[in-house]
Simulated assay, not measured.
Amino acid sequence: MLRVDIEKQLGEFSLSATFTSEGRVIGLFGASGAGKSSLVNMIAGLLRPDRGTIVIDGETVDDTSAGIHVPTYRRRIGYVFQDARLFPHLNVAQNLDYGRRMNGLTPDPAQHKRIIELLDIGALLDRRPGKLSGGERQRVALGRA
């Protein structure tokens, strides 16, 4: 569950968003410059709202009135940046496994296999990001998230 009720002033641009979603995957769409990236950056903890709250799975990660701001690395959410941002020194398999390892989670071979098959990236596992096409990098970034 995600609950957002925020405001942010970015130069001359004012962003205000209020919504709740029960979905595990959420898509945002809108015109260029509408504030989509800024909103996602606030949800991820990369940007602080000027006012409001963000609650992820029942945990308040931002509450400006209470002075709460949980750092990005503690929010346990996946974020696919527009430019994929894969770790260049890791191969595809290591990039896919990064979140699990950094959170100390037990390996789940069945889940790992499902992701690889869903995204059709089995043939890429030993390759580094620099040897992937743009679409391949996006699929790997989705799998990592």
Results as ranks from 00 to 15, higher is better:
residue 40 V to Q: 04
residue 99 G to M: 00
residue 127 R to N: 04
residue 94 Q to H: 15
residue 81 F to C: 01
residue 58 G to F: 00
residue 18 T to K: 15
residue 35 G to E: 04
residue 118 L to I: 03
residue 1 M to W: 03
residue 30 G to N: 10
residue 30 G to Q: 11
residue 36 K to Y: 07
residue 128 R to M: 13
residue 93 A to P: 13
residue 101 R to M: 12
residue 25 V to D: 01
residue 84 A to V: 06
residue 63 D to Q: 07
residue 2 L to P: 02
residue 136 E to Y: 08
residue 38 S to F: 09
residue 122 G to V: 01
residue 48 R to M: 09
residue 97 D to I: 05
residue 111 Q to C: 08
residue 90 L to K: 10
residue 59 E to C: 09
residue 59 E to S: 11
residue 116 I to V: 14
residue 114 R to K: 10
residue 137 R to N: 00
residue 9 Q to C: 11
residue 87 F to M: 10
residue 45 G to W: 08
residue 142 L to P: 00
residue 57 D to C: 07
residue 140 V to Q: 04
residue 10 L to N: 06
residue 43 I to C: 04
residue 7 E to H: 14
residue 71 P to S: 06
residue 145 A to K: 07
residue 17 A to P: 06
residue 90 L to A: 11
residue 70 V to T: 10
residue 39 L to P: 03
residue 110 A to H: 14
residue 56 I to C: 06
residue 106 T to W: 11
residue 75 R to V: 08
residue 74 R to F: 07
residue 87 F to T: 02
residue 27 G to N: 03
residue 95 N to R: 10
residue 97 D to G: 04
residue 123 A to T: 11
residue 80 V to L: 00
residue 113 K to T: 12
residue 29 F to S: 14
residue 121 I to L: 03
residue 95 N to A: 08
residue 41 N to Q: 11
residue 95 N to G: 06
residue 50 D to Q: 11
residue 94 Q to C: 12
residue 75 R to M: 05
residue 70 V to G: 06
residue 125 L to E: 06
residue 24 R to K: 12
residue 73 Y to L: 14
residue 43 I to G: 05
residue 45 G to Q: 03
residue 73 Y to H: 15
residue 118 L to P: 02
residue 46 L to D: 01
residue 96 L to R: 05
residue 119 L to F: 05
residue 81 F to N: 01
residue 75 R to S: 03
residue 75 R to Q: 06
